[in-house]
Every structure is written in structure tokens, then in C-alpha cells.
Amino acid sequence: MRPFDYIRAEAQSDATRAGAEGATIIAGGTNLLDLMKLEVMAPDKVVDITRLDLGEIGEARDGGLRIGALVTNSDLAADMRVRKNYPALSSALLAGASGQLRNKATTGGNLLQRTRCYYFYDTDQPCNKRAPGSGCGAIGGASRLHAILGVSENCIASHPSDMAVAMRMLGASVEIESEDGETRVVDLAEFYVLPGEDPSVETVLKPGDLITHVILPAPRAGRQTYRKVRDRASYAFAMVSVAGRVSVQDGRITEAALAFGGIGSQPWRDGHVEEMLVGEEPSTALFAKAADALLADAVTQDGNAFKVPLTKRTLIATLKDLTAEIAQ
């Protein structure tokens, strides 16, 4: 761990000002501290935002929820409004990490957690995300954890969050305060950026930006689920996960929202796949067609090619569950 300066923000403006001057924001620290110990991340200055008043879950004007960036994963998963109206989010949170980590990890921090790519963690290995221009060790190397969608020739790292996958499916957006005190709201669909030329840039956040809240839109009709497939029963990242919400009326799908973890460079959502489902009668053939569309552009390595059939099977089974009353 490189020696660093520590400051504690008493007001949001302390955090945005420090951020603009190059400080890295720390909240729960469940990911950042590990990375700092390994010198994968080596900020000169960290600004601790845990004293800010961002720990409440409020109601948004349209009937949704406005979740403070410092709400812990445990508290968010246990919130009765979340459990009732956004059960996929509660399930996703509880599918992640361990009880101890969820007690520390925050909503804002979870959105920003870094990839678990083995090569990102090993500072003697090439990694364009950690050291731009050094190359990608995972391409042609160990790639079991890695993405098959939204990858580039410079990076195949997957986004590790469960929470963000459910939020993506729910149409969440991120409220951001910038150094000048302005607040903007960015849809999660626009929040992450693809690896492209420079995989070290992962979001649209600029220095001085502070995530203050995550906004969930008003609850929508339909059944929700979060299905996570992993190598052990707990404390493992998703090989694939599916967050889904499907509404069925008169034997036809009227609404569908699907997001995927473990397979994308960011929490993955493909509107085209959802459109294929809407207006149709649920059937295995339809679900298989949707899965094929989702995976049409998959780029695989030896170590993660199995995620194509795995994702297809998981999506079909998830959609069957979500439409079970009619798809006998």
C-alpha cells in the first residue's frame, strides 16, 4: 500500500472538491482497500464520505425509491419496500459477497467495484485496465470469470456486481453531484462505458463527481427474479446471472426487462431481446430464440465459451419461471 493522505468529508462539497483535486472516494472500502494493499490502485489521497448524510432510503416523487449512496447492501436488501416492490434487487444483493461484506459495502461503492480479473489483480501481469497499454493477459490466458459481451480486443474483464444487474433491469438511474454543485441524473444504461480503446475508463464519472443516490423508478407490474449461477453455493462471482421481470396478460407477454451479470463488461441489457418477447406467447422456442439473439455477438475464449450454452439455458429456465402460470 502506497502511503496516502486521508481526509474526511463533512459536506458533499468536501468530497467533490477533493475528488476534483485527484482524491479517490472511499465509503465501505471493501474493494478499494484490498486493491490499495496490492497497489493495484494507489491513490495519493482518499476522501472518506462515510460521515455524509447519504444513508437513507427515501421515496421518489414518481413513487419509486431514492437510495442514498451510503445505504449498505445489507440494509438495502432488508428494506421492506425493496423486498415487496423490487424483489429481484433484494435477491441480487443477498446473492453477493458475504454477510460481513454486505454490512460494510455501500450502494454507490457497489456500482463502482472493479473487475475480479486475475490479471487485473496481479501487478506483474499485463492489464490494460490497470496499466493502459500493457496488454491483456486474460485474452489467451485464464478467462473463466470473463465477459463474452461488450468486450474489446484490449479487455475482456467482466463487471462483478450482482446489485447493479438487478438495478439495470429495474431501470435505475444514478444521481451525481459534481464539483460545481450541480446535480445530474444518469440512466444506468448510460453510466457505464464499454472497454474500447481504454478499459481503465469504466464509467462516465469525472473527477469531482460524487454518486449521491440511486433512483429506482416506480414499481412495474410483473413477476421478478434474480437467478445466479456460480461455482460454489455462496461467496463466488456469477458465471452468469439473470435479473428478470416479465408481465403476461391474456397469454401474451406484455412487458419484459432482462439484465445479465457474469457475461458482460458491464451489467448487460439488450433491448432487442426484450422486444422479441413482447407481444408473443411464452414458449421454449421463443425463449431460445431470444437467447440466441442475446448471444449472437458473443466473443469467447477457451475458458469461457461454456457461458454461451450456460446463458442460453439459464435464460430459458428463468423466462419459464417468470411465465410459468401460462406456459404449462
Partner: peptide, 14 residues
């Protein structure tokens, strides 16, 4: 490659 307990999977309680 997997030199930590996050990625070398020993069985957990579950």
C-alpha cells in the same frame, strides 16, 4: 492465476 481464496474455491458453509 488464482492465488487467493476468492478464486481458489474451497467449500463454504453452504
Amino acid at each position: 492465476v488464482n492465488n487467493d481464496m476468492a478464486e481458489y474455491h474451497v467449500p463454504v458453509n453452504l
